[in-house]
Write a protein that binds this DNA or RNA. Structure first.
Lengths: 86, 86
DNA sequence: CATGCTTACGGATCACGTAACCATG
DNA sequence: CATGGTTACGTGATCCGTAAGCATG
């Protein structure tokens, strides 16, 4: 698991599609697809349903998204903490 | 910032030295030194004092360690959540 | 045939380990 | 000279983008 993968699943969820997540992340589609695949492989769980028009989180996906957002928020707080009181 | 870097600083803090952190992480010393350097560079903050006999967290380092442990704990919970109720 | 996800592949970057170097007690 | 951190350097792994493939409306 990597922080990039977490940002990726959050972007896919919020944009509803890999193409648009890719734009947000300043990437092309393939790396976005691959980041998601690698994460799903590692966790052994499918996080998104592949629909004809985009991506929809599974139940496990929704649970994981909540964790992902918490982790990314904690990372942001860590950065701000050090930036502030240096 | 990467999760590997966070595990690295926690290991250095708990072991008190890069050599022993390396053993815990199943690495040699140089990558451990480099992970720490890269993180300190990115954050623009020194996290450890280099003592003759090992490493000692700075004030910023101690603050950061608390964040690092929180993040790694959240990662662990995310994993367990998906592993449990699959 | 337009949209969107995925696979193949080549090339650049990253990150490791070995080896050598430096500092301190 | 033993212990511990760092730097140099070569190599294997990782990760991107381009291109091509595949499925659905």
């Amino acid at each position: 698991m990597s922080l990039d993968q977490l940002e990726t699943v959050v972007a896919i969820a919020e944009e509803g599609a890999v193409v648009r997540a890719a734009r947000r992340l300043h990437l092309t589609q393939p790396p976005v697809t691959r980041r998601l695949q690698a994460l799903e492989d590692e966790l052994g769980v499918q996080l998104f349903e592949r629909l004809p028009n985009g991506m929809r989180p599974t139940d496990a996906g929704r649970r994981f998204l909540s964790h992902a957002r918490a982790i990314l928020g904690a990372v942001e707080r860590a950065r701000e903490d050090l930036a502030t009181e240096s």
